[in-house]
Design a protein around this nucleic acid. Structure first.
Lengths: 180, 180
DNA sequence: CTGATCATGTAATTCGTTACATGATTCC
DNA sequence: GGAATCATGTAACGAATTACATGATCAG
């Protein structure tokens, strides 16, 4: 039984404790979103499938009088998660970057347009970098409290990744504006 | 009339001269593929749409007795391409990186599995880096012959991008293997 | 003559987002 | 009382890939 990659997002999020679909979506939006997004339209149907497959177990909860279904990993689910992380094989990698695409064709416009484009790209990555930096304190707290190291390391990678692109934009802006 | 991003790949590729759908696909596969992929299933229907919209013009050609339809940009198409490159506004950016996703959840496995994972990620990015490096001479030739600067600059960015991730993997491997 | 490449397309499927519908509860 | 948040889902749509079908020509 082959699982979609997004299933593992759910399994991974449940490993740390009981969560509802809503919780998972909220967690994704402040963590994996930057390299693996997921929407309600995927999460809820996927929860059903994972439950049918016996990888997670859901139980109705009473959370302040509010009805909800929280899920947790079964031993089978934990096993599937670990097997996926440790398994070799090709890793799905996909990038869609409209800024770089425009840049690739930027011979079609003048230097002013080229520099404008780079500034627009840079602004976007600065925004994401700042967004990630804002999340950092939360990740550090989670690290200190529960001992997870990898979410924080991943966040630091993400910040460095955004910074790398920002720096490349700056350098290239100067190169082009400098007439060489 | 809103065009899909992939339409601009076609417009951009046609800007340099007459091309068939087959040509465009081949060009994409050695250039924009790394940040904006496209398949026949998109290209051929899109060529039809762009022709209907008057942005490109297709004429039957006899290329060594082989029947084919080569397209070229109309003034309207050139205009649309330039407007897109220079227009500000948010740029579609999307990354799906299974390696980083696994890494995010790697607290679930032991140090051996963690280092294995990083090595797998690194190997993939080294492979892409080498693939891009192999393309370089072709891009340099195109630069020298036709004066296009941006495809080569984009390629150099791509190589640096892959290298950035490779370096991060190496560092992190050492950090983890070193027990800190 | 045979396999590789050139060349054009379509159909089925997968993956994912967006928008909508619904309703309870909590905070101000 | 009203807005924000919690909570669960589905339907419609869109974007893109994969696989398939077809056939010509070119290089060895």
């Amino acid at each position: 039984m082959e699982l979609a990659k997004t299933s593992y997002v759910i399994l991974g999020m449940l490993r740390l404790g009981r969560r509802t679909g809503y919780d998972i979506k909220a967690l994704v939006d402040v963590s994996t979103r930057f390299f693996w997004a997921a929407s309600y339209g995927q999460i809820y149907p996927e929860l059903k499938r994972l439950e049918d497959a016996g990888l997670i177990a859901g139980e109705p909860e009473d959370h302040g009088g509010r009805r909800r279904r929280a899920f947790s990993l079964t031993p089978l689910g934990e096993q599937a998660l670990q097997a996926w992380i440790a398994s070799g094989g090709p890793l799905h990698f996909e990038l869609r970057h409209e800024g770089v695409l425009r840049f690739f064709f930027a011979d079609a416009v003048g230097p002013a347009g080229q520099v404008d484009l780079l500034r627009t790209i840079r602004a976007e990555h600065e925004r994401v970098r700042d967004e990630l930096t804002a999340i950092r304190c939360g990740a550090e707290a989670a690290h200190a409290e529960r001992g997870e190291r990898f979410p924080l390391m991943t966040l630091e990678f993400g910040i460095a990744y955004q910074e790398f692109i920002v720096d490349w934009c700056s350098e290239t802006e100067h190169r082009i504006a400098g007439g060489s």
